[in-house]
Nucleic acid binder design. Structure first.
Lengths: 194, 194
DNA sequence: GAGGGGTGTTAATGCTCACTAACATCTGCG
DNA sequence: CGCAGATGTTAGTGAGCATTAACACCCCTC
């Protein structure tokens, strides 16, 4: 095949894995499927990865790492809490729209990881959530942290729903809609009595 | 076993299937797992259902049917659009909190259905979404239907995130939080220029 | 031009799993 | 009683699949 740049095949495999895992689920994708998707046979994968589970692990650790890193960066760069929340929302929305497969795998396949990988991913996710919670705590000083954490998780559910409901909207329309909805949901005033 | 009421075992199997499919995914649950969960061996299931896929089909059609039916009923009973939206939100939230397994399976396992079952479930889901869209159209007369549909799907993502992020909140706290966030997200005014 | 690392192929191997067969048990009914 | 239907059980059976073995090729370097 004579592909020069080291790791081209590797990254192709990771991309195919993310796409196929998102579409059919980890257990619904075979090694042969993965090989076929990158133009080889199944067992060729073992030249690049120790096994199927390691593949999933790499995908999940990578996306968690990117999200957490980006989150930290955006918050650090922002002038105030309001601006930081906006940046987090825009960043997450862009990610969800650009990489729907990664977002899907990220919140469905945690259970198929090695215990060690699961720990790593969980730690990264927790860090990312805490970025959001920290920003929200400034905007809603009265709210208890447990409420803010739950609110952030719910907002992720909203933002991550994109891959399952693309619909007829253009990308900018969808981005704007999610931004408005996410901001409204997260900055809703403290619960009035029902 | 001498269980009197016809269908006790049947409903027990369906309950176990929903729970196990939610936890491990359709493909991560074996017939033996299902049998064990209801106190029999695996093959005993075939006395009650033609196969594993039929089991999933029954679970998904049933939950879709209940949601759609409940939605129609709530909207019909409500006095106005505002009240109808509130009823839909409360109904959906109660369902998500009472039956997290059903909600989880409902939006993850569509791909493992028979083509016929998938059609039925899709039709029911569409009907449910249209209830929401109809109500929203009254509250936001200017908005195009495609936007409202996308907004409803996004709101479902928010409400259905419950099972994955129960956290430390009590049930009433979580219900109130989701109600506030959902209402805020759905009634946000038309997008201002960013 | 010989050797070696990197990458690929086809053919096992051994396990899991959905589903079926053959046989048991119980319960109610004539 | 005696039988029938409903419901279980244990042993196949055959397919799919992750992983490994054994072997081939290419390219780079000495």
């Amino acid at each position: 095949m004579a592909v020069r740049p080291a790791g081209r095949r590797r990254t192709a495999i990771l991309g195919a894995a993310a796409r196929l895992f998102a579409e059919h689920g980890y257990r619904g994708v075979s090694i042969d499927d993965l090989g076929r998707a990158v133009g080889t046979t199944g067992p060729a994968l073992y030249r690049h990865f120790p096994g199927k589970q390691a593949l999933l692990g790499e995908v999940l650790v990578d996306v968690s790492d990117r999200l957490a890193g980006r989150g930290r960066e955006l918050v650090a760069r922002a002038a105030g809490a309001e601006e930081a929340l906006d940046a987090l929302l825009r960043g997450h929305i862009a990610f969800a729209l650009d990489e729907p497969a990664l977002i899907t795998v990220h919140d469905r396949e945690l259970g198929n990881l090695t215990a060690a990988d699961r720990r790593r991913v969980r730690r990264l996710q927790r860090g990312y959530v805490e970025q959001w919670v920290g920003v929200l705590a400034e905007l809603r000083p009265g709210a208890p942290p447990a409420v803010l954490r739950a609110a952030v998780h719910a907002a992720f559910g909203l933002l991550n729903s994109t891959p399952h409901s693309r619909g007829e909207l253009s990308r900018p329309q969808m981005a704007q809609l999610l931004l408005d909805m996410g901001r409204a949901a997260l900055t809703v005033p403290a619960a009035p009595p029902s």
